[in-house]
Amino acid sequence: MDTCISVHEAIRRKAVGMTREQVARAVEVARIHERLRSWSSGNQQDQAVIRGLEQAHEEWLRIAYVMCVEKMTTYQLDQDPAVHFWLRDDGPEVCDRGRSPGSDSAQGCLCSDSGSVRSA
């Protein structure tokens, strides 16, 4: 079994130390990537990629919002209230290949060996 992390966890890790302006640019890039879903062929692999793009966009938007509300100049995991909630309830967000943490449904998962979005 390879260790995988959720799309949300990967985005949070990437965001650490980023400024509001950098996060705003990441939100815009994620929005553009998510719009590419219209080019999808509709097969299962494309659908997994689309779910990952949607989750990434959602997480960047959430981080931008948290930074505004918490008045962060740079994003820090220890200042993100949601991270404390998730770690308290579930522990670190890890998943078996093809599964999102805490989920019985097929959702995106980033695997450390390939960096690709997987689905069950």
Score class of each variant (00 low, 15 high):
19 T>V: 02
116 S>D: 12
111 C>K: 03
37 R>V: 04
92 P>D: 14
72 M>Y: 02
101 P>F: 07
118 R>V: 03
66 V>I: 12
72 M>A: 01
45 Q>E: 14
113 D>P: 00
53 L>P: 06
42 G>A: 04
83 V>P: 00
65 Y>A: 13
114 S>P: 00
41 S>E: 07
60 W>Y: 14
48 A>L: 05
90 D>L: 07
33 H>Q: 15
71 K>C: 07
18 M>T: 01
63 I>L: 00
117 V>P: 00
10 A>G: 09
2 D>H: 07
39 W>K: 15
42 G>R: 04
58 E>W: 13
67 M>G: 02
4 C>P: 01
58 E>H: 12
18 M>A: 03
15 A>F: 01
46 D>F: 02
86 W>C: 04
19 T>H: 01
92 P>Q: 15
64 A>C: 01
75 Y>K: 01
59 E>K: 04
118 R>H: 13
46 D>V: 06
80 D>C: 04
3 T>P: 07
86 W>N: 14
98 G>H: 03
113 D>I: 02
66 V>Y: 00
89 D>Y: 11
112 S>N: 10
81 P>Q: 02
42 G>M: 04
82 A>Y: 09
40 S>D: 09
45 Q>D: 14
52 G>V: 15
8 H>V: 08
2 D>E: 12
57 H>G: 03
110 L>Q: 03
66 V>C: 01
87 L>P: 06
54 E>I: 11
44 Q>D: 11
93 E>R: 15
31 R>C: 04
56 A>G: 08
65 Y>P: 04
102 G>H: 08
22 Q>C: 05
6 S>G: 04
93 E>P: 12
10 A>S: 09
12 R>Q: 03
55 Q>A: 13
117 V>C: 01
12 R>I: 09
95 C>N: 06
68 C>D: 15
16 V>S: 07
61 L>R: 15
119 S>Y: 01
68 C>Y: 13
78 D>H: 14
11 I>A: 06
64 A>D: 09
94 V>T: 12
107 Q>T: 05
82 A>V: 15
82 A>S: 10
43 N>H: 05
24 A>E: 15
118 R>L: 06
74 T>W: 07
97 R>V: 12
76 Q>G: 03
84 H>S: 13
48 A>C: 15
33 H>K: 09
97 R>D: 05
119 S>I: 09
113 D>W: 10
87 L>D: 12
66 V>H: 00
112 S>D: 08
12 R>T: 13
105 S>A: 11
86 W>D: 06
66 V>L: 00
113 D>R: 11
31 R>N: 06
23 V>M: 00
41 S>T: 08
8 H>D: 14
28 E>I: 00
